[in-house]
Design a protein around this nucleic acid. Structure first.
Lengths: 256, 256
DNA sequence: GTTCCTTGTCGTACACTGTACGACTAGCCT
DNA sequence: AGGCTAGTCGTACAGTGTACGACAAGGAAC
């Protein structure tokens, strides 16, 4: 279940994200005391607690004690609601980011860990396809600003600064997605990752041909044993982050 | 729209993936000439042509000229069908992988480019959440085998070999997802990425505060201009791959 | 040659989704 | 007091995956 953002008129979306529309308590004026913010907050709470799959317009409306169609007074459609959710959740970045200041590498590592923490808090962020046309609201821009500052003063030009932040951010998101997928699989099946691996490994052993997959035969069991699973996202995060920062360091050292 | 794999009984899934069940042309015996392979091939063709969103059991059945429930004779549920689709599509890896042989770096780069090509051919692969519990069929294992061979003989131990391949593979998938998201957004809205950016940029200019986002003010326009969009996945791929291989090189050089 | 059993086919039904449409009503302005 | 505006929401539509059970066709047994 992936949702798409960046649908809908850019002008309309941006004015929503930056809350350019007045609260306008006219006419019957917010009968149930609702507002865009209350809707968005409830949506985030629901997605946090029960996953993006549980977030339907009817369910959200029920949580807020109104009819389903009432939500459309505050939000043009579900896609825009998701934009707002993403921007709001990503806006928590500064509270999770405590940079060790002096060296770019320490700052960039802190960015990666803060980003990881965000995805742990709001796993549904990873199920919203926002990379192509991000909701350019205050939350997203704040995260982008702090991310760029981490690589500022390294001698890299503007294009490279953007590329480095995007690379780190994409890496974190990709790896965090592994956690989300595992949790989703556990919830869907009632079987933990370790149990699944223990059930799968012996059957697999019997079914596959060591002559055809000699390197897998040598490496697979060692790696599987080390992780107690087919894939351990947390290990992958630590390993990958170190490699990535090493790679960026090569670039920084080459810069004037 | 993300689908989950790894649901369902591991033993049942594995015997499907490795085609351990006999064709069994008994009873009325495959009336319409159907088979697991025909179903899977048709599903892949449909997803390739019209996206994963168009792949419904009813639609797939219609394409094959049978009733919807007939599919459940060949496949236990949609989740298992997706497993089979993933394994089959990933099994095309060898035909796209032409390693430049001698140096690990050239091999690993070829792995990344072949993987990228796979995701370009079958974008829906990225919408199937397979990272947690991959369908361990012949296709997946073949790709894993060739990926591991690329980093074999570098002095890295087994766990590191697995980690490096996983890192590269995750990077490619994450970056390729950017392309998929953009194409999906274009299809959903009828607006191209460049058009969207040209519509968004000027409004954004007016709405946001340069004092609050000084680094974004400096970097954003330069990066945006260079890419003609908020994000250019192909550039990100080239840039990230170079950084990543540099980082791996640091690790390889440190190994005995 | 008749019967039975196995196996493949598939119509119907259920609970669910996002949201267009239009009816209703409560509050403010004139 | 009358009218208008703006928030509320019931109903409806076209779609989803798949459980259930009815049906039919071929092979095996007598």
């Amino acid at each position: 279940m992936t949702e798409i953002t960046g649908t809908g008129d850019p002008a309309r979306s941006l004015s929503l994200l930056w809350r350019l529309v007045e609260p306008s308590p006219r006419g019957r004026g917010a009968e149930a005391g609702l507002s865009v913010d209350r809707v968005v907050d409830a949506a985030i709470a629901l997605a946090d607690a029960e996953g993006l799959g549980a977030l339907s317009m009817r369910r959200l409306a029920a949580d807020l004690g109104v009819g389903a169609m009432t939500l459309y007074t505050y939000v043009p459609a579900k896609a825009e609601l998701l934009d707002l959710m993403v921007d709001t959740a990503l806006g928590e970045f500064p509270s999770l980011y405590t940079p060790a200041a002096d060296h770019w590498r320490a700052r960039l590592e802190a960015v990666a860990r803060a980003s990881w923490a965000q995805y742990e808090r709001h796993p549904w962020l990873l199920q919203v396809a926002a990379s192509g046309r991000p909701p350019l609201g205050p939350g997203v821009l704040t995260k982008y600003e702090l991310g760029l500052r981490a690589v500022d003063g390294t001698g890299l030009d503007e294009v490279a600064m953007d590329a480095v932040f995007t690379l780190i951010e994409g890496f974190v998101a990709g790896t965090a997605r592994g956690v989300v997928d595992q949790v989703a699989a556990e919830q869907a099946t009632g079987i933990t990752e370790t149990e699944w691996w223990e059930a799968t490994a012996p059957i697999l052993d019997r079914v596959f041909d060591p002559e055809r997959f000699p390197t897998v035969t040598r490496v697979g069991p060692v790696a599987g044993e080390a992780q107690q699973a087919a894939y351990d996202p947390r290990r992958a995060f630590e390993f990958g982050l170190a490699r990535l920062l090493d790679g960026v360091a090569v670039l920084v050292d080459a810069a004037p």
